[in-house]
Amino acid sequence: MAKFHSTADPYIVSRVRALESLLMEKGLLEPGMVDAVVARFENDTGPMLGARLVARAWLDPEFKRQLVTDATPCLEAFGLNGYDLLVILENTPDVHNLVVCTLCSCYPWQVLGLPPTWYKSPPYRSRAVLEPRALLAEMGLIVPEAKEIRVWDSSAELRYMVLPERPAGTAGWSEEQLAALITRDPLIGVALVPTPAGAGPA
C-alpha cells in the first residue's frame, strides 16, 4: 500500500543476501540467529508488557504511584529486570500525552513490541510536534481544546509510554479483563482505551 512501505525490490534483496552471507563467513551472524532474534516480536505482537502495567495501575493505586514515579521496580514485578529508562506519562482529565521520535524511530519496544510503520513515517514524525491536535483529530481522536496536549519527543535513550485513562463501564473488571481491552495505540497516545460495548457506567 502506502508510499512509506517497503518492497521486495530485487536489488535490496540481493544486497541483504550478500550481507547475510558475508556476516556468517565473518562469524558475525550465526545460523538460526535471525529466527532467534525476531522470535519475541513475532510471537507476541500485541502491546506485550504495556497493557499489563496499565491494567494493574488502574486497580492498584500504590502500583500506579510507583509506576509514574519510577517504573523500574514495576517492570521487575513483570520479569523485566534492570531496565531503568522507561518513563510513564499519566493521562488525566486535564492532560493528554503523545509520544513521538522526530529524529528516527525511538519507541518503548521493551513494553510495546516493535513500532508500526506509521510511527516511523515522515507524516507522523513531522506533524506530531507542530500540530498534535490536528494530527490526532485526523487519526480519529478529538482532544478537547480545554485539554493540554504534551508531546514527548524521544530524543535521548529514555523511552515513553502513556498511562491512559480507565474507560467507563469497567467497574469490577479483573486485571486480565482490563489488560485484554488495552491495545497499542492508547499507549502511544493516538487513541483512548474504548468503553466496552454494551457496558453500563463505571
Binding site: F4, L114, R125, S126
Partner: peptide, 19 residues
Amino acid sequence: DMGGMHGFGPVEVEQNEPV
C-alpha cells in the same frame, strides 16, 4: 530531522500490520 516539516501528507495506518 523532521520535526515541524510540512508536505508529507496524512498518517497512513496499515490495519493488522505484520511485524
